Measured scan of single mutants.
Amino acid sequence: MKVIFLKDVKGKGKKGEIKNVPDGYARNFLFKKGLAIEATPANLKELE
């Protein structure tokens, strides 16, 4: 799953980066803790 990092996550990504991460990791950790959001076309446009 492609995500946009909202905060730095040690060993995974830095704020503003767009990366592919495992689906479970994104849903169960990154999204729940507010560390990242899904890289949807709308979210990507908002980032620019």
Score class of each variant (00 low, 15 high):
1 M>Y: 06
1 M>T: 14
1 M>S: 05
1 M>Q: 05
1 M>G: 03
2 K>T: 15
2 K>Y: 14
2 K>V: 14
2 K>D: 10
2 K>M: 15
2 K>A: 14
2 K>F: 15
3 V>K: 00
3 V>Q: 00
3 V>N: 00
3 V>M: 02
3 V>F: 00
3 V>G: 00
3 V>I: 08
3 V>L: 03
4 I>F: 08
4 I>D: 01
4 I>M: 09
4 I>T: 02
4 I>V: 10
4 I>P: 00
4 I>E: 02
4 I>H: 02
4 I>R: 03
5 F>R: 00
5 F>D: 00
5 F>P: 00
5 F>S: 01
5 F>H: 00
5 F>K: 00
5 F>M: 03
5 F>T: 00
6 L>K: 03
6 L>D: 01
6 L>M: 06
6 L>W: 02
6 L>V: 09
6 L>Y: 03
6 L>N: 02
6 L>P: 00
6 L>G: 00
7 K>A: 12
7 K>P: 00
7 K>N: 07
7 K>T: 13
7 K>V: 14
7 K>Y: 14
7 K>G: 05
7 K>R: 13
7 K>F: 14
8 D>F: 08
8 D>L: 05
8 D>R: 04
8 D>A: 07
8 D>W: 07
8 D>T: 12
8 D>S: 09
8 D>Q: 04
8 D>M: 05
8 D>I: 03
8 D>H: 08
8 D>V: 04
8 D>E: 08
8 D>N: 12
9 V>G: 01
9 V>Q: 01
9 V>R: 01
9 V>H: 02
9 V>M: 05
9 V>T: 03
9 V>F: 04
9 V>Y: 04
9 V>P: 00
10 K>S: 10
10 K>H: 13
10 K>D: 11
10 K>R: 13
10 K>T: 10
10 K>P: 15
11 G>S: 07
11 G>R: 05
11 G>T: 06
11 G>F: 11
11 G>A: 05
11 G>K: 05
11 G>Q: 05
11 G>L: 05
11 G>W: 07
11 G>Y: 09
11 G>N: 09
12 K>Y: 15
12 K>T: 11
12 K>E: 10
12 K>S: 11
12 K>G: 13
12 K>W: 15
12 K>V: 15
12 K>M: 15
13 G>L: 02
13 G>Y: 13
13 G>Q: 02
13 G>M: 03
13 G>F: 14
13 G>H: 11
13 G>A: 13
14 K>N: 10
14 K>S: 10
14 K>V: 11
14 K>P: 01
14 K>R: 13
14 K>A: 09
14 K>I: 09
14 K>T: 10
14 K>E: 06
14 K>H: 09
14 K>Q: 10
15 K>H: 08
15 K>P: 04
15 K>R: 14
15 K>T: 08
15 K>Y: 05
15 K>S: 10
15 K>Q: 10
15 K>E: 06
15 K>F: 06
15 K>W: 04
16 G>L: 05
16 G>W: 10
16 G>T: 02
16 G>M: 04
16 G>Y: 09
16 G>K: 03
16 G>Q: 03
16 G>P: 00
16 G>A: 03
16 G>N: 08
17 E>S: 06
17 E>K: 03
17 E>N: 04
17 E>Q: 11
17 E>L: 02
17 E>I: 01
17 E>W: 04
17 E>F: 03
18 I>M: 07
18 I>A: 04
18 I>Q: 04
18 I>T: 06
18 I>H: 04
18 I>V: 12
18 I>R: 03
18 I>E: 04
19 K>N: 04
19 K>W: 08
19 K>V: 10
19 K>Q: 08
19 K>E: 02
19 K>D: 04
19 K>F: 05
19 K>S: 07
19 K>M: 08
19 K>L: 10
19 K>T: 07
20 N>A: 12
20 N>Y: 15
20 N>M: 15
20 N>W: 15
20 N>Q: 13
20 N>H: 14
20 N>T: 15
20 N>P: 07
20 N>V: 15
20 N>G: 07
20 N>L: 15
21 V>N: 01
21 V>W: 03
21 V>Y: 06
21 V>S: 02
21 V>H: 02
21 V>E: 03
21 V>G: 00
21 V>Q: 05
21 V>A: 02
22 P>S: 10
22 P>D: 11
22 P>H: 09
22 P>A: 11
22 P>V: 06
22 P>E: 12
23 D>E: 15
23 D>G: 12
23 D>L: 15
23 D>A: 15
23 D>S: 15
23 D>V: 15
23 D>R: 13
24 G>T: 13
24 G>V: 12
24 G>Y: 14
24 G>S: 14
24 G>W: 15
24 G>F: 14
24 G>A: 14
25 Y>F: 10
25 Y>Q: 05
25 Y>K: 05
25 Y>H: 04
25 Y>A: 06
25 Y>I: 07
25 Y>T: 05
25 Y>G: 03
25 Y>V: 07
25 Y>W: 11
25 Y>N: 04
25 Y>M: 06
26 A>T: 07
26 A>L: 08
26 A>W: 08
26 A>G: 04
26 A>K: 02
26 A>S: 04
26 A>I: 08
26 A>D: 06
27 R>G: 03
27 R>Q: 12
27 R>S: 07
27 R>L: 13
27 R>H: 11
27 R>I: 14
28 N>T: 08
28 N>K: 10
28 N>W: 11
28 N>V: 06
28 N>I: 06
28 N>Q: 10
28 N>D: 14
28 N>R: 11
28 N>A: 12
28 N>M: 10
28 N>G: 14
28 N>Y: 14
28 N>L: 10
28 N>P: 01
29 F>G: 02
29 F>I: 11
29 F>N: 08
29 F>A: 04
29 F>S: 04
29 F>T: 08
29 F>Y: 15
29 F>W: 11
29 F>H: 11
29 F>D: 07
29 F>V: 11
29 F>R: 03
29 F>K: 03
30 L>W: 02
30 L>E: 00
30 L>A: 01
30 L>T: 00
30 L>Y: 03
30 L>R: 01
30 L>Q: 00
30 L>P: 02
31 F>N: 02
31 F>W: 02
31 F>L: 12
31 F>G: 01
31 F>Y: 04
31 F>V: 07
31 F>T: 03
31 F>P: 01
31 F>A: 01
32 K>F: 07
32 K>A: 11
32 K>N: 07
32 K>Q: 09
32 K>R: 12
32 K>M: 11
32 K>W: 07
32 K>G: 06
32 K>P: 15
32 K>H: 08
33 K>V: 09
33 K>Q: 12
33 K>R: 14
33 K>I: 08
33 K>Y: 15
33 K>N: 15
33 K>L: 15
33 K>E: 10
33 K>W: 15
33 K>H: 15
33 K>A: 13
34 G>E: 06
34 G>K: 10
34 G>L: 08
34 G>R: 09
34 G>N: 11
34 G>F: 09
34 G>T: 04
34 G>S: 05
34 G>I: 03
34 G>A: 07
34 G>V: 03
35 L>I: 07
35 L>R: 02
35 L>G: 01
35 L>T: 02
35 L>W: 13
35 L>S: 03
35 L>D: 02
35 L>F: 13
35 L>N: 01
35 L>K: 03
35 L>Q: 04
36 A>F: 01
36 A>G: 04
36 A>P: 00
36 A>W: 01
36 A>I: 06
36 A>D: 00
36 A>H: 00
36 A>R: 00
36 A>M: 00
36 A>L: 01
36 A>Q: 02
37 I>Q: 08
37 I>R: 08
37 I>F: 04
37 I>E: 05
37 I>D: 01
37 I>L: 10
37 I>T: 07
37 I>N: 02
37 I>M: 14
37 I>S: 04
37 I>P: 00
38 E>I: 07
38 E>T: 05
38 E>D: 04
38 E>R: 11
38 E>S: 08
38 E>F: 04
38 E>M: 12
38 E>W: 07
38 E>N: 04
39 A>E: 02
39 A>D: 02
39 A>V: 06
39 A>N: 03
39 A>R: 01
39 A>T: 02
39 A>H: 06
39 A>P: 03
40 T>L: 07
40 T>I: 06
40 T>N: 09
40 T>G: 05
40 T>A: 06
40 T>S: 11
40 T>D: 06
40 T>P: 05
40 T>V: 05
41 P>N: 09
41 P>S: 11
41 P>T: 10
41 P>K: 11
41 P>H: 10
41 P>R: 09
42 A>K: 12
42 A>L: 10
42 A>W: 07
42 A>V: 10
42 A>I: 10
42 A>R: 10
42 A>E: 11
42 A>Y: 09
42 A>F: 09
43 N>P: 04
43 N>F: 10
43 N>L: 11
43 N>V: 12
43 N>W: 07
43 N>R: 06
43 N>E: 06
43 N>Y: 09
43 N>K: 06
43 N>A: 14
44 L>M: 11
44 L>V: 11
44 L>Y: 05
44 L>I: 14
44 L>Q: 07
44 L>A: 06
45 K>M: 13
45 K>R: 12
45 K>E: 12
45 K>D: 10
45 K>N: 10
45 K>P: 06
46 E>A: 15
46 E>W: 15
46 E>H: 11
46 E>Q: 13
46 E>Y: 11
47 L>W: 15
47 L>F: 14
47 L>I: 13
47 L>H: 13
47 L>Q: 11
47 L>N: 09
47 L>S: 08
47 L>T: 09
47 L>P: 05
48 E>D: 12
48 E>S: 13
48 E>Q: 14
48 E>V: 12
48 E>A: 14
48 E>Y: 12
48 E>R: 05
48 E>K: 06
48 E>T: 13
48 E>M: 14
